[in-house]
C-alpha cells in the first residue's frame, strides 16, 4: 500500500498498518497493489494487505465487492491482472498444501450419501492417486480423522450422511476437513452464512479456539462482522478501489469507511457492542441472497 494510488484519492485509503514495514515474523500472506479483472470487469484494484502467522483476520465489505475473489487470488484460483500475491513467500498456487480452504457454499445436497467422516478424510488424502489400501498409512489417516472430528465436536454425527446434517453440523465437519493437513492458514469463505444465530456464535467460537490453540492463522470472509467481532485481531475492509486494514476499532469507523467508499457512511454502535454500518453500497448486515461469485 505504499505504492502510488492508481484510483482517485477518495477511494484510495492507506491502512492503519503499513504492510511493507519490516516485522519480526515473516508474513503468511502478502498482497501488494493487486488488481483482479474478471470477464472484462475490474473486481477490485490497488488492494494491499498482509496476514501474520496466528492472526485472526476478517475480510469485510458489501456484497459483490469481491471478498471471495480475494481468497481465490491468494490460492491462485483467480489470476491477478496487476500486482503481486505471496503465500508463505511463494507465488499463488504453490503453497496451497499449507492452507485449509473452505469455499462459500450453501450446503451439501440432501441426497448425497457420503458420510461426514469421508468428507473430512478427503481433505487429508483425497488428492492422492490410486486405491486407499489398508495399512499403517490408512490407520494413521483414520486416527487423524477421529482427532479432527473430536476437535470440532462432531463425534455425535460424523458417521451420518453429510447431506442429512444441519448447516451448523456440516460447517463444523468442513472446518475439520480444512484442518486435516495441519495448515498454517485457514481460509473460510462466509462460514457463518445460512446459519442461525446460536450456530453462528458456536462456529465463530470454535474457529477462534482453533486459531488460538492450534496456532493457525485465519482469514475469514464475512458480511456481518458481529458474530466474530470479539475474536478478531484485524479486519481488512475491501472496496473497489483498495482495502483498509487495521484493528476493528480503527477500521470500522465512519471516517475510514467514508474515505474507502467515497460516499457518506455511518457506523452505529448498539448498547450490546454490535456494530451497524449504514450507507454502504449494499447493507452488509442483511442476509440477502448469495450471488455466485466468479467461477
Amino acid at each position: 500500500m505504499s505504492t502510488a494510488p492508481r484510483q482517485s484519492a477518495a477511494t484510495r485509503v492507506t491502512g492503519a498498518r503499513v504492510p511493507d514495514e519490516p516485522t519480526a515474523r515473516p508474513a503468511l500472506v502478502e498482497i501488494v497493489d493487486a488488481t483482479v479483472v474478471l470477464g472484462g470487469r475490474t473486481v477490485w484494484s490497488g488492494v494491499g494487505a498482509t496476514i501474520a502467522p496466528g492472526e485472526f483476520v476478517a475480510i469485510l465489505g458489501p456484497n459483490g465487492v469481491g471478498k471471495s475473489t480475494l481468497l481465490k487470488a491468494v490460492l491462485g484460483l483467480v489470476p491477478l491482472a496487476r500486482g503481486t500475491v505471496r503465500l508463505l513467500g511463494r507465488p499463488p498456487g504453490q503453497a496451497n498444501h499449507d492452507v485449509g480452504y473452505l469455499p462459500q457454499r450453501r450446503s451439501f445436497d440432501a441426497s448425497l450419501r457420503i458420510r461426514g467422516l469421508d468428507v473430512v478424510r478427503l481433505g487429508l488424502d483425497g488428492d492422492r492417486w490410486g486405491l486407499p489400501l489398508p495399512g499403517p498409512r490408512s490407520r494413521a489417516a483414520a486416527a487423524r480423522v477421529r482427532e479432527l472430528v473430536d476437535l470440532v465436536g462432531a463425534g455425535g454425527y460424523a458417521h451420518r450422511p453429510i447431506g442429512q446434517l444441519s448447516g451448523g453440523e456440516q460447517q463444523r465437519l468442513l472446518i475439520a476437513q480444512a484442518l486435516a493437513r495441519r495448515p498454517r492458514l485457514l481460509m473460510l469463505d462466509e462460514p457463518l452464512d445460512s446459519l442461525d444465530l446460536p450456530n453462528q456464535a458456536g462456529v465463530a467460537a470454535l474457529i477462534s479456539q482453533i486459531c488460538r490453540t492450534e496456532g493457525v492463522a485465519v482469514m475469514i470472509v464475512a458480511h456481518d462482522v458481529n458474530p466474530i467481532l470479539s475474536y478478531l485481531d484485524r479486519v481488512i475492509y475491501l472496496g473497489q478501489g483498495g482495502a483498509v486494514s487495521g484493528t476493528p476499532g480503527e477500521v470500522i469507523t465512519a471516517a475510514t469507511l467514508t474515505r474507502l467508499y467515497g460516499t457518506p457512511i455511518e457506523v452505529l454502535s448498539t448498547s450490546d457492542g454490535r456494530l451497524v454500518v449504514v450507507g454502504q453500497p449494499e447493507a452488509p448486515a442483511l442476509h440477502t441472497d448469495r450471488h455466485p461469485e466468479h467461477a
Partner: peptide
C-alpha cells in the same frame, strides 16, 4: 478408475476444495 478413483470422488463431492488441493 482405480488410479483416479479417490481424486474423482473428491472432485465429485467437493469440486472447489479439490481444485484448491491441486486435483
Amino acid at each position: 478408475l482405480a488410479v483416479i478413483g479417490r481424486p474423482l470422488l473428491f472432485a465429485s463431492v467437493d469440486t472447489d476444495v479439490a481444485r484448491a488441493h491441486g486435483v
